Simulated scan of single mutants.
Amino acid sequence: MRNEAIGLSIEGTDVKVAHIALSHKGVILKRLDIAQLPAPLGVPLTEEEQEKESMDAFQEAFGEIAEVGAPVDERAEDEGDEEEEDASSALLGILSGYNLRKAKIGVNLPEDSVSYYLLSDTFAVKGRKLKRALMELVAPKHERSLSPDMINYVKAADKNLLCMVCDQEPAFLDTLKELKRFLGRNKPYIGLIDSVETALMSLVRANHQVAPGEITALIYVCADSSRVSIMKGAEYMRLLPPIQEGASSPDFGKTIYSKILFEQDEGGLPDIDRVILAGDLDVPSAIEFFSEKFPKAKVETIKYGKFIGTEMEPSKIPAPLSSFALPLALARKSLEPTNPRY
């Protein structure tokens, strides 16, 4: 029995890992890690990048006299695939640091590989039969043939369903297939593949006491992008369009606030009762900013559930806990798949 879980969030070249274990007394936080891939998984090089790779290899072999367009030998041409190989090798190094035979892995879907549909919950079936019904309904909108494994759903506010469709197989899975032969007996088991938004909303449902009609803005901030999910009570209500600004921008808070105001002015979004913050942000500054912008709302950081203990020294935690919101959500959801709160 696998009583441990590894939440693995991969967003571009940023990788965060949360390792937790379930004992008879509760959940133990074992380890938190941050790593950087040299390139995104599964992203092919552009012609310009391939040319630069080839020229760099040529110059390394023959000196700085090389000119653009000069012929290169086979050794230099082979260098064009080095970046993707390095990304795979980096992921192998990350996974090799864990006992994968004891753990389930939960991983997020890339933002650009998920399509969302808000549908009225008028279906008389559940489980895989409901997935098949949803598949038949949304299949005409997709060029690729769908299977039930590519579809998931969660209950949404006002008797709706949020249907999520994975448009393409995640690059992580392709890379994992390649790496299995290098992992030997330490083979990984994927227990969960989930979207960023639904994974984080599961933490809110499980750990925040929200009233049935309460409107919550769940704000998740990465280095270069942000996402805002709106919940009504414990259920999904709507997603705001992706925001191409994150913690690396000094004005990301103002941009997020303006997007929420636009939804209120143009989209009929009700007043915000609660703001929940997660991701790569300066927590005190973010709480101060959004408390000022939403003076009637409760502003807080996301909660992760109780840990009965940790195997990490506080000084060795590589970043504020809010930075690990996504991998912790994936890990907890993987560890307790039958828990209705997740």
Rank of each mutant, 00 (worst) to 15 (best):
M1Q: 05
R2K: 15
N3K: 12
E4I: 03
A5W: 01
I10E: 00
E11W: 04
E11C: 13
A18I: 05
L22G: 04
K25F: 10
V27C: 08
I28H: 06
I28W: 10
L29W: 01
L32N: 05
D33S: 14
L41W: 11
L41A: 10
L41N: 08
V43D: 06
P44I: 14
T46S: 15
D56A: 15
A57C: 12
A61W: 05
G63Y: 04
A66S: 11
A66Q: 04
E67Q: 12
A70H: 13
V72K: 03
A76R: 02
A76H: 03
E79P: 01
G80W: 07
D81Q: 12
E82C: 10
E84V: 11
S88V: 08
A90W: 02
L92N: 06
S96V: 02
R101Y: 04
A103H: 03
K104N: 05
I105D: 02
N108C: 14
L109G: 01
Y116P: 00
T122R: 07
A124R: 06
A124H: 09
K126P: 03
R132T: 05
E136P: 01
V138E: 03
K141L: 15
S145M: 08
S147W: 00
D149E: 14
D149C: 00
M150H: 08
Y153R: 11
V154C: 11
M164L: 15
C166N: 07
E169Y: 02
L173G: 07
L173D: 08
D174E: 09
T175R: 09
T175Q: 07
L176T: 12
L176M: 14
G184V: 11
R185K: 13
N186D: 08
K187R: 14
G191P: 08
L192G: 01
I193K: 09
I193E: 04
D194T: 01
D194L: 02
D194N: 10
L200G: 00
M201G: 00
V210M: 01
A211S: 09
G213R: 04
T216P: 01
T216H: 01
R227T: 11
R227V: 00
S229W: 03
G233K: 02
E235F: 11
E235M: 12
Q244F: 13
A247N: 13
F252V: 05
F252P: 07
T255K: 07
I256E: 00
I256V: 15
Y257C: 06
K259P: 00
L261T: 11
E263L: 04
E263P: 02
D273A: 05
D280T: 12
S285T: 14
I287R: 10
S291K: 05
A297W: 00
I302R: 04
Y304P: 01
I308R: 00
E311A: 13
M312V: 09
E313D: 14
P314H: 07
A319W: 11
S322V: 13
A325H: 01
L326T: 05
L330G: 08
A331T: 09
K333C: 10
S334T: 15
P337E: 08
P340V: 15
